[in-house]
């Protein structure tokens, strides 16, 4: 039992950076932009979050910085694709290369300035990032560890997902945004400010990705700087969007399932089941590829990518 609890808790933690990346990408794709820059935006969030945390020793400021850096990366992407109508695939790839590159340049720069040759977040902020402890609740057996002993990121991620789901399903603005991703001509003709909403969603989505990036360096790596800290999670997030069929609530459990796949290899009894580690690492991608094929084969219209995804919008093109 306690083994199971440990596994679930580990899966949730491993899935949390994915949750942020996925939610950010959902916000992009919902306004019709397939943004392959998630990895880059997460990297930017990681470096900004880390460096601000390192300098200020303030968790809240670090989170804001991570959000701002991801959002700034997304803003470049938005300018290039929304206003200048460039190809989404190429712009996204560029953002990834640019983001990772910039992250490593800054990290290298700071590493060069440190005396020990390593960078570690100070004590105070490390305390704040630790798992919460709510007296009473956290100590309840089973439920305590399963629900009330995570680090703050986990709760922030879930709250964002729920808010997004409410936004898309129950507000007028959410309806308008979904309309943009499906048919920007229709949304524009109905009086929705297509370009403005695209900017807002892409930029906020990028900010959310940035927080996920901060997670990778603050939690996964325990606050010690390494280069390439996001390590491909951004790409899994792009995959997860498909798995979640573009719905924020599905992203919650989807990312925890993917988190479970990431850590599965540490929890399987190697004496009994002989599967090479590489296959566990491959699993999320394999599963996503299969889902992608199944979704396309079944042609479920309501579970497909927003119809206008990957295309640019110019009002006078009809």
């Amino acid at each position: 039992m306690s083994f199971m609890i440990r596994f679930i808790v580990a899966a949730v933690v491993a899935g949390t950076p994915l949750l942020f990346g996925t939610l950010g990408e959902i916000m992009n794709e919902r306004v019709g932009h397939l943004n392959l820059g998630v990895e880059g935006m997460m990297s930017l969030g990681a470096v900004a979050g880390f460096m601000v945390g390192y300098r200020t020793d303030n968790f809240a400021l670090a989170l804001i910085a991570a959000f701002a850096a991801g959002a700034l990366g997304a803003l470049i992407y938005a300018i290039v694709t929304v206003t200048f109508m460039a190809n989404h695939t190429v712009a996204g790839l560029t953002l990834t290369i640019f983001g990772i590159g910039l992250t490593n340049v800054i990290g290298f720069h700071y590493l060069g300035m440190s005396e020990s040759g390593t960078l570690k977040l100070p004590e105070h902020i490390t305390q704040q990032m630790r798992a919460v402890h709510i007296t009473g609740l956290s100590d309840v057996p089973v439920i305590g560890p399963l629900l009330f002993q995570y680090n703050p990121f986990v709760y922030v991620g879930i709250v964002i997902a729920v808010l997004l789901a409410l936004f898309y399903n129950f507000t007028k603005a959410g309806l308008n945004v979904r309309a943009i991703g499906e048919n920007p001509q229709a949304a524009d003709a109905a009086g929705v400010h297509v370009l403005a909403w695209k900017y807002v969603n892409i930029v906020i989505g990028g900010g959310i990705c940035g927080i996920g990036g901060a997670f990778t360096i603050m939690i996964t790596n325990g606050g010690v700087w390494i280069s390439d800290c996001v390590g491909g999670l951004g790409w899994i997030a792009v995959a997860l969007v498909i798995f979640a069929t573009w719905k924020p609530v599905n992203a919650i459990w989807g990312s925890f399932v993917f988190g479970a796949m990431r850590i599965l290899k540490y929890y399987v009894n190697k004496e009994i089941i002989h599967i090479p580690d590489a296959f566990y690492d491959m699993l999320p991608f394999l599963v996503t590829a299969v889902i992608l094929v199944l979704v396309s084969a079944r042609q479920v219209r309501d579970k497909a990518q927003p119809a206008a995804c990957g295309t640019n919008y110019f009002r006078e093109d009809r």
Binding site: K172, L175, A179, N183, Q185, A187, R301
Partner: peptide, 27 residues
């Protein structure tokens, strides 16, 4: 109000949702 020759409707939405797009006020 313009009724375009090529309809400007979101295929995967219901009629009602299409009518609601872009209208003022709360949903």
């Amino acid at each position: 109000g313009m009724i375009h020759q090529h309809f400007k409707l979101v295929d995967v939405f219901s009629a009602m949702d299409n009518i609601a797009i872009g209208t003022k006020g709360k949903r």
